[in-house]
Computed example of a mutant assay.
Amino acid sequence: MPKIDNAIIMAAGFGTRMRPLTYKTPKPLVEVGGKPMIESVIDALHKNGINDISVVVGYLAAQFDYLPQKFPGVQLINNPYYDRYNNISSLYVARDHLHNTVILDGDQLIMNPAILGRDFTHSGYAGSPINSWSDEWIMHVDEHNVVASCNRDGNDHGWRLYSLSKWTAADSSKLKQYLIQEFEDQQNRDIYWDDVAMFKHFTDFTLTMMPINPGDIVEVDSIEQLAAINQRLKGRLN
């Protein structure tokens, strides 16, 4: 059984939906409950013995410089393309760090660290059941939780895909080559990195859905959500 060796945290984006707050603060460093969101992610990784952590930065990158000093094992990877291309560029610049790896976003809260456990069997994405309209990506799985398809039309039932995925070394090797193919050879740079495995080269992977509870991950996508979550979680993340 493989074990997670390292983590890649995506933290290069503008956080446009959180403006004007993110004009001066990158979204992963926005505080919730008195703590920057990305520190919630790093703390959860550390609780699972995952200390080799690469943080991909871009927008207001200098504000992340304190992280390696505060959290031994954290390194920063600069994404020089963050202001031109979609987040495929972030995993592309971090591609050499793909091993037995967990990939997740820095602008979310990990409320249940157990979902980042190092033991896993197959590559795949975290998901929770959904049976109402959603603008999220929806996975459809078979009786073994193998992903049969994924769509983004918003009018389907299935399993909501979260920005938390685990990759075996073998699949990471394939993912790395497809990132190079899409980003360099095809110059397909306006897609999400998840498109590479979930849509562009879906048949070359056997991805699983890792069930989680809806409250295990909290995403903050607006100023209003931030205020509500701050009130609810104040002091809980300290």
Rank of each mutant, 00 (worst) to 15 (best):
P28V: 03
Q225L: 11
T203A: 12
A227M: 09
I50Q: 09
N79E: 07
S173T: 11
D185L: 10
E136M: 00
Q187L: 07
V218Y: 09
N188Y: 13
K176N: 14
V93G: 07
K35S: 04
L237I: 03
M10A: 07
T206E: 10
E39A: 06
V147W: 02
A11V: 10
T206G: 04
T101V: 05
L237R: 11
N145S: 06
I115T: 07
H97T: 08
H122Q: 12
G127A: 03
P80G: 06
N230G: 04
N230Y: 04
Y178F: 14
P214T: 01
P129T: 01
T168Q: 08
K174N: 11
L91P: 05
G34R: 11
F120N: 05
I110K: 11
M210Q: 15
H46D: 06
K27Y: 09
Y125G: 00
L175C: 02
P80R: 03
R17P: 08
I8V: 12
N86E: 13
P26L: 08
D135G: 02
K176H: 08
D204V: 04
E136V: 00
D216G: 12
N100P: 08
A7L: 00
Q63Y: 05
L179F: 05
L207T: 03
R84T: 03
S90T: 12
E39H: 11
Y125N: 01
S165D: 02
L226M: 05
D5Y: 02
S149K: 12
Y23C: 07
N188Q: 10
N79P: 04
Q177A: 09
I191A: 04
K70W: 09
A7C: 04
S134A: 02
I88Q: 13
G158E: 05
G215T: 11
G58L: 05
T168G: 02
A7I: 01
N48G: 12
Q181M: 12
R152D: 09
P26H: 07
G106W: 12
D190W: 09
F71R: 09
A12Q: 14
D204H: 15
N48Q: 15
S90K: 10
D43Y: 12
I38W: 14
L207N: 07
D65P: 01
V30M: 02
Q63H: 03
I217M: 14
N238D: 13
A114W: 03
Y81Q: 01
S165Q: 01
Y125M: 00
E219Q: 15
D65N: 14
G15S: 07
W133L: 12
D216R: 15
S132N: 13
T206R: 14
I88R: 11
R84P: 02
N6S: 10
M210Y: 07
V93H: 13
M1H: 11
A44T: 12
I138E: 00
